[in-house]
Design a protein around this nucleic acid. Structure first.
Lengths: 147, 147
DNA sequence: ATTCTTGCAAACGGTTTGCACATAC
DNA sequence: GTATGTGCAAACCGTTTGCAAGAAT
């Protein structure tokens, strides 16, 4: 968590094979210097203060690029559309990045329950563990390299 | 996981304060008897085989109702819109059900790393723990009872 | 000079909403 | 009889896409 300056950000983008534009710099920095876990819209509003001409489309494209190369994380959604489950007890899910199939992960995560004391003043009602990866069917058919 | 018959389903719906319709029965049962974690669209297609007149809108409304009373679970999305995070290391999130704010949960879940052997043939690349609940700011302002 | 990126606007698709009719209670 | 649920279609809104102009290498 060292403090980064503009040069560091530029270097980071280059290291990840991205062309450097002031838009990308602004978007990445806006995200880097907040703890808010903002939406694309929120980032857009933030960046627009400095660069009024930037478009929401660019924000989406840039976030997707940054996500692809691993510079940022998507908190959600896990899958493209909502998925439902009649099993309401606490259990976890494995989501295939390729075919979007979901398997229950009880057998894997097993008895390892995460203890969540009511702490930080956050009252926890549910917990959900999501494992992202490749299911047996898709694992073999992945040809391109995964970082 | 006892095997339920129609009467049981009807009773379950009633116990949760829901009026019983054959649409609700069909939707709930379709979800109950699959491990596929289907989308609303998939459930719609399934139920339509028996009840061709059912509409997709009804499926959505019913799923939302079932979710509200706790009979089913939503696997995703966690929040209404995608949210981003520049911290790419494995860490977890607390999502406030009220204001949709997201906090990092490292301090709570702490060092409890979930060991995920490559098992079941599922290759796990990332894991994400999401805690749903109420943040300090919203906790006080919740007036209606939570089941 | 070539390739990649931006901005704009339209399209897309999952989900929600409004309303008249039908059904559950 | 009254409240609730359904079906249909339109609206909604976050996100993606296509394309011409602009910027990065």
């Amino acid at each position: 968590m060292e403090v980064k300056n503009d040069k560091d950000f530029i270097a980071t983008l280059r290291e990840h094979g991205l062309q450097v534009t002031y838009q990308r710099l602004a978007i990445y920095q806006a995200l880097y210097f907040t703890k808010e876990h903002p939406s694309a819209e929120a980032i857009y509003q933030q960046v627009r203060k400095r660069f009024p001409m930037i478009s929401l489309g660019t924000v989406y494209k840039t976030l997707e690029k940054l996500y692809e190369v691993g510079l940022i994380q998507k908190v959600s959604p896990i899958t493209e559309v909502a998925r439902y489950d009649a099993i309401t007890g606490p259990h976890h899910h494995m989501v295939c990045l390729e075919c979007q199939s979901i398997q229950d992960a009880d057998s894997i995560v097993g008895a390892q329950k995460i203890s969540v004391p009511e702490q930080n003043g956050f009252r926890v009602l549910r917990q959900q563990v999501v494992l992202h990866g490749y299911c047996p069917a898709c694992k073999g058919s992945i040809t391109d390299s995964q970082s």
